[in-house]
Write a protein that binds this DNA or RNA. Structure first.
Lengths: 341, 341
DNA sequence: TGGCTAGTTGGAAACGATACCAGTATCCTC
DNA sequence: GAGGATACTGGTATCGTTTCCAACTAGCCA
């Protein structure tokens, strides 16, 4: 089906016997076009099989109607949902979303941001892999378009909108819940400090203990990556220690699968031998036996909100602002009375 | 940080006191450039803070170095993995992937294909929501760039490469396995016939029975959408029927969560009260109690392969071809001896 | 020394659209 | 019927690149 050359507006104009600019006006439905002109041009468009070239249009217009989305791990269902929410919202506003992935690498963060800049996307939604990296900040500073961060705090970047989730509240209620059940040897398995969610969870985890006049169990903290493998290793490690935990908090859905694998290998039963809380709802948390207590939040909504904040600035020319998505503790059978020791 | 106007190659040329075309040659490292020229231009680029405009470049060059990916449901972890595989591969070859989503709507299939065409992507990887839709075929026919279909058969589209998975083999061994365990009342819960995977599974499901001189249990077929809700409804429906199944096959990971919800509601235990097989490995299948027998395939590899087939045609100028990804049955505790009736 | 080639460079025409500025025709209004 | 506003249309510069072609320089050989 290869045609020799795509028809252009000029071809349309020639075929219709009108000026190029008139074709443009018709296509952008400019107020000053007669019905007759509209008819002729539309006819010619159909005749020659014209299709707009959005590249040329964007170049001239200075706007691509495209938004870049950078996720730190696209295969994580959490990000898939955020992306879904964002895409839906952007699509409504006639924007196309370019989804890219840094796979946990700060270096790729930089490359992707640069690439999106060069492609002249009209705005960016970012969930970078490393908030602290200097190079990333440099790339961001060169940016000339609105930015929305998702659950990230990049210091030095003051003119970005931010969507965060209320990790503090969620983690707080999780720890309180466990303490109330009689647990004090609570392990926290979480991701790297370069990322806000991990930092927040850790901060509040410790604080929750202190507020109850308890010493945070530093020996039960395991800070690694957000991967399943990291979760599995950390759990095995904890279980092999002198004083293993009676409860665990997994800081993400990938970590959770690692934790569960490890528990299964050690033949421990969740809810009976050890209490378990996870972060972010996935099918597994609900359908596990026993069902797993979880700190939940609405990921699709986060994406939607991110797109919203971006559009505010793009269309409405509003100021950057912060939005917080609530979290809530869903208590299930994985957290019960602590075993007597 | 808003600069008045981005620096262009012309600014670089002026600053360096050379011609615009020389700057271009340096940037595209053309063979005929002296070292001295290279130095001067590079210096000027740094001085004025020049950054390439990929829009203008693409327009002139006639290639965007961009590939469109259309998924029928991006929030499905299966597609997330396929996208991941494809993106990795494309990224190596310096292509950017634009990920879009038709959310199960054939109408959006059309719109998205049209949009990608207008944006002049160099190639497309498609997993459309409806293979049979006439409008989609029209949009595809207008396309002038290589296309790879993922697990879809669009008849009338002869010049596309295709990556499929060997559903036949997987389904065949699943049914054989269940029959061998003594099951004959086997239910199949699957997606719409517009999609190849569903069609293939159904075809082979029936055939497997006939090959064993058995009548396929038509009353236990439930063909709906691929959603969790559809799976739940179908299961409840089956369980309420005169002669409920002793085994079930769920044709996808979303369907599976629906099936499990329904079974839980009816207080049935997987593996004891009813045998269960699912399609596509997810954390839930492995970590469920009991673990769920599954027809598995390597989704990341499928994406990788799709990108590969596309690059073959883009870079290597090869002919379209078909590739098949194997499936394998992983037997777990969810399929055991049939209960005596 | 003349002429030829190879290595570099500059100039200008595309690529396919949009938007500004004029120009013409039409219609009121007094 | 003159004047001016209004509705439409055409021509052309421009967006930021790449690419083709011509021109210039230097080196080399006869």
């Amino acid at each position: 089906m290869a045609r020799r050359r795509d028809a252009t507006m000029e071809d349309v104009a020639n075929h219709a016997g009108v000026a190029l600019s008139s074709v443009s006006r018709v296509l952008n439905d400019h107020p000053d076009v007669s019905d007759r002109m509209k008819q002729r041009v539309m006819g010619a468009i159909a005749d020659v099989g014209y299709e707009p070239n959005l590249l040329a249009s964007s170049l001239r217009r200075g706007s691509t109607k495209t938004i870049g989305f950078l996720a730190s791990d696209i295969s994580n269902p959490l990000f898939a949902e955020i992306a879904l929410g964002a895409e839906r919202r952007l699509d409504e506003a006639e924007y196309t979303m370019v989804l890219t992935n840094s796979e946990g690498s700060g270096e790729r963060d930089e490359e992707m941001i640069r690439l999106l800049r060069w492609r002249r996307t009209d705005g960016l939604i970012l969930s970078v892999s490393d908030e602290r990296r200097a190079g990333t900040l440099v790339e961001l500073a060169r940016l000339d378009v609105p930015v929305v961060l998702i659950d990230r705090d990049v210091k030095g970047l003051d003119d970005a909108s931010v969507v965060t989730s209320d990790h503090a509240r969620g983690m707080r209620s999780a720890v309180d819940h466990l303490i109330e059940l009689g647990h004090t040897d609570i392990a926290l398995i979480s991701g790297p400090r370069q990322l806000r969610p991990a930092r927040e969870r850790l901060r509040v985890f410790r604080r929750a203990f202190r507020d109850q006049q308890l010493e945070p169990p530093e020996h039960l903290l395991r800070i690694g990556s957000f991967s399943a493998q990291s979760g599995e290793q950390a759990t095995l490690d904890l279980l092999a220690s002198d004083r293993p935990p009676t409860a665990m908090i997994a800081g993400g859905n990938l970590l959770l699968t690692g934790v569960l694998r490890a528990l299964r290998r050690r033949k421990l039963t969740v809810g009976r031998d050890i209490a378990l809380v996870s972060c972010d709802e996935v099918p597994l948390t609900e359908l596990h036996s026993p069902p797993i207590t979880v700190i939940a939040r609405d990921a699709v909504h986060m994406g939607d909100l991110a797109a919203e904040l971006l559009l505010e600035r793009l269309v409405g020319d509003a100021e950057p602002r912060r939005a917080v998505v609530p979290t809530s503790l869903i208590v299930r059978d994985s957290t019960k009375k602590a075993r007597r020791r």
